[in-house]
Amino acid sequence: MNLFALFFSAMLINNIVLTKFLGMCPFMGVSTKLESAVGMGAAVIFVIFGASLLSYALYYLVLVPLDLKYMQLITFILLIAAFVQFVELFVKKYAPALYKQLGIYLPLITTNCAVLYVAQDNITKGYTLIETIVNSIATPVGFMLMLVIFATIRERLNQNDIPKAFRGNPIAFIVAGIMALAFSSLAGLV
C-alpha cells in the first residue's frame, strides 16, 4: 500500500476528529487555550504511537498464537491504561510544567476513543508493521492539527458576543461542523 497515500489520508482526508468523530472529549475540553491544545496534541501523538505498537505486538505475538483473539478488547484497553499510567509518571518526573498544564486530561487519554480505535484499526485493516507505524503517527498528527486550529478559532470566538444559549460548547460544535465541511472537500484526493 502506498505509504504516502496512507499518511495523507490518515492525517487529513479521513481525519479522526472531523470524519470519524473520535477524540471529541479532549477536542472540546482542551481546545479553549492554544497552549494546552499543543501540549495535549503532543501527548496524544506519543500515547497513540506507543500504544499502537505495543498492542500490535501483543496481538500478533500473544493473542493469535494462543488463539485468544476474543480477548483483544480487554488486553488492548488494559495495555493502554498501563501505558498512559507510565507516560504520566514519565511526564511528571521530566516535564512537570506540562504535567500541571494537562491536569486531569492526561490520565483521561486512556478513555480517549482515538487511542483504542487506532490500536484496533491497525489489526482490523491488517496493516503490516510499517503501515502500522505510519498510521499510528499520521492519525494523531491529524488530531493535533485539528485541535490546534480549533483552539486558535475558539480563543478568538470566546471574545465575541455570542448568544447566551450557544456560549461554550454549542458554538464550538457549530465551528467544528464548518471545519468538517471545509476538510470534506479533500475526499477522493489520493
Binding site: P170, I171, G177, A180
Partner: peptide, 18 residues
C-alpha cells in the same frame, strides 16, 4: 454527513443550554 452531525448537535446543545 459529518457536518450535519456537528451542526445538529450544536443546535440541540444550544437548545438544552437555553
Amino acid at each position: 454527513a459529518e457536518t450535519g452531525s456537528f451542526f445538529t448537535f450544536g443546535v440541540l446543545a444550544a437548545a438544552v443550554s437555553g
